[in-house]
Amino acid sequence: MFGIRTLVLGVDLLTLKPGDASARRVLRQAVLIHATDTAAALYAGKRGELPARAAMLTTIISAVNTGLAVVSLAAAEKS
């Protein structure tokens, strides 16, 4: 599930035009989805449901995506 949601969000973001009214909605969804992915990866790693290396990599990737989404949302709300 991690990949397909990221792909759908990416397509949404790539097709938005500057000043598009739906940009903030898409960015808010991105923050929520990536933060949830981060928490799920961390939780799965702590429970041993993922190998340690896979859990660490997935958590880091999702956390970076969350950070990027938060920064993008903050920038969009300033404009």
Rank of each mutant, 00 (worst) to 15 (best):
R24N: 07
P51N: 15
L27H: 00
G48V: 02
E77L: 08
L57A: 11
R47Y: 03
L42V: 07
A63F: 04
A44K: 03
G45K: 01
L73H: 04
T59R: 01
L27R: 00
T36F: 03
D37T: 08
Y43F: 14
A76C: 12
A35F: 02
K78Y: 09
G67S: 00
V70M: 03
G67M: 00
M56V: 14
G10W: 01
T66K: 00
T58D: 09
S79F: 07
L32H: 11
A76K: 06
A52N: 08
G10N: 07
L13V: 06
N65T: 03
R53E: 15
S62H: 04
P51K: 14
A54W: 08
R5P: 07
L9Q: 05
Y43A: 09
G19I: 05
Y43I: 09
E49D: 13
G48F: 01
T59N: 02
S62I: 00
V11D: 10
A75I: 03
A75C: 04
Q29V: 07
A44T: 03
R28M: 07
R25L: 14
A23H: 02
A30I: 01
L32Y: 11
I33N: 02
S62A: 12
G10H: 02
G67P: 00
A39E: 05
A40R: 10
A23E: 08
T59C: 08
A63I: 01
A74I: 13
G10Q: 04
T6P: 09
L7V: 10
S72R: 08
F2N: 14
S22F: 09
E49V: 05
A39W: 05
V26A: 02
